[in-house]
Design a protein around this nucleic acid. Structure first.
Lengths: 133, 133
DNA sequence: CTGAATCCTTATAGATACTG
DNA sequence: CAGTATCTATAAGGATTCAG
């Protein structure tokens, strides 16, 4: 399980620069525009393609296809296709995908907790730098 | 706003449909290429501009400037400039920044725990789809 | 040393039309 | 319904130069 509640888990001289501590790996996967939204929606239960499309407003068919495929490829989502007419495809999180969704939800917690403080900070910053180019 | 014209403007994705859980908010902030790396480096202690540049290999001066400025603006990092010659500028995490770094470290934990499983999954997927376009 | 100002390349994603 | 296939727009990031 997790370690270190006292600070960021890092090695003393910290190779978080050269080949980092795994942070870039996750972000390369969920850092895009749609992945987490699909992930979070699937965390609510099994969804069909069209259901996902409606549940994630603004996503294009193309991006949903690419996003789900990447998630499947990474073993985070399982795809089940039924040879019916019209076709029917179900997506569901794998256990690994669910654990990622869980970890991501923690970040969302952080966001909600600090949203106001950050907006205040931005307000102050913008006010203090209102003159500069 | 005065930051916009310099280049970095992570486009807001808008509310995540019915319930914006805050996930997009965080990712719009740390989902870029450099922010978390700088964040994690600063979690190790106070750093000067050049120290950061060396500690985060591959980052350009421009991106380091933009990244630190954004972090400062959001109240995650505090900047202290000394009017020496040559100039000397120190960056350090605020408590809020430290708490974000902590949350991000949890995600890194997840990554390390599942890195192998994901690579296996990708290997299987690629093998199973070796023929298709 | 710590930036700011420009120009330029390339990922990423949006729009649209087509298909089994 | 669940995708493919193109084409295009945009902005994120890189390289370089200049400045306090």
């Amino acid at each position: 399980m997790s370690v270190a509640h006292t600070g960021v888990t890092l090695q003393p001289t910290g190779p978080c620069g050269d080949d980092d501590c795994g942070i870039r790996d996750v972000l390369d996967r969920i850092g895009d525009k749609w992945t987490v939204l699909v992930l979070v929606e699937l965390a609510k239960g099994v969804r069909r393609f069209r259901e996902l499309e409606r549940a994630v407003p603004g996503i294009s068919q193309r991006m949903l296809t690419l996003t789900t495929r990447r998630l499947c490829r990474d073993g985070l989502v399982e795809r089940t296709a039924y040879a019916t007419i019209p076709p029917q495809v179900e997506y569901r999180l794998t256990p690994m995908g669910a654990s990622l969704a869980e970890a991501v939800a923690r970040l969302a917690d952080w966001s909600r907790e600090h949203k106001d403080a950050m907006e205040d900070a931005r307000g102050r910053w913008d006010a203090a730098h209102a003159d500069e180019p």
